[in-house]
Simulated assay, not measured.
Amino acid sequence: MEVHDQLRALLDEQGVTYKLLRHAAEGRSEAVAAIRGTAVGQGAKALVCRVKISSNKRANVLAVFPADRQADLDAIAQACGGKKASLASRELARELTGCEIGAIPPFTFNPDLELLVDSTLGQRYEEIVFNAGRLDASILMRADDYLRLVAPRTAPFSSERAAETASEPQAAAARS
């Protein structure tokens, strides 16, 4: 079953009220927010990270945070009890989520992918919105329903975005 269908089945099974939004295919936070007619900060952005726990142990983490903020990889590593975190490759992200980068919802259906949600998610907006396993469909739902449903581990790991500069290409990748 495709991630989009798994996600909708889960929400339906749990009796969660949500709105399915169909739109032009888009995976960039600012662009898809404009298409959806929502604030960028309502977006629940999901990054697949690899966290080095020890010299021979790694954890795969789906880090979810408001799309108008930037992820701090060091804080993600610390929240997971690790030493260092990095973004997963496109191939690993696809393997762990079943989705292309930009379409990954803030849910994990893979036991090898731990969920970590930034403690600011849901604090500014009653509703969150996210790509629903596809670049051409999003789900809008109450933030408290999301948090109740996934019962995530939470930690502060995002901050307000700083202006991008040409000297920070890796940091820019964590922000986009």
Rank of each mutant, 00 (worst) to 15 (best):
A25E: 06
A25Y: 07
E26M: 08
E26K: 05
S29E: 12
E30R: 15
A31T: 12
A31M: 10
A31Q: 13
V32Y: 13
A33T: 09
A34M: 07
G37N: 13
G37L: 09
T38A: 05
T38V: 09
T38P: 14
T38M: 10
V40P: 12
V40K: 11
G41W: 07
G41C: 03
G41P: 02
A44T: 05
K45V: 09
K45Y: 07
A46R: 06
L47S: 07
L47G: 04
V48H: 10
V48R: 02
V48K: 01
R50W: 00
R50H: 02
V51R: 01
V51C: 04
V51F: 09
K52T: 14
K52E: 03
I53W: 01
I53D: 05
S54Y: 00
S54G: 01
S54H: 04
N56R: 02
K57T: 06
R58H: 02
R58N: 07
A59P: 00
A59R: 13
N60P: 06
V64S: 11
V64C: 09
F65G: 12
R69E: 08
R69Q: 15
R69F: 15
D72T: 04
D72R: 02
D72Q: 10
L73V: 10
L73T: 10
D74E: 11
D74M: 08
D74S: 09
I76L: 13
I76H: 10
I76D: 08
A77R: 04
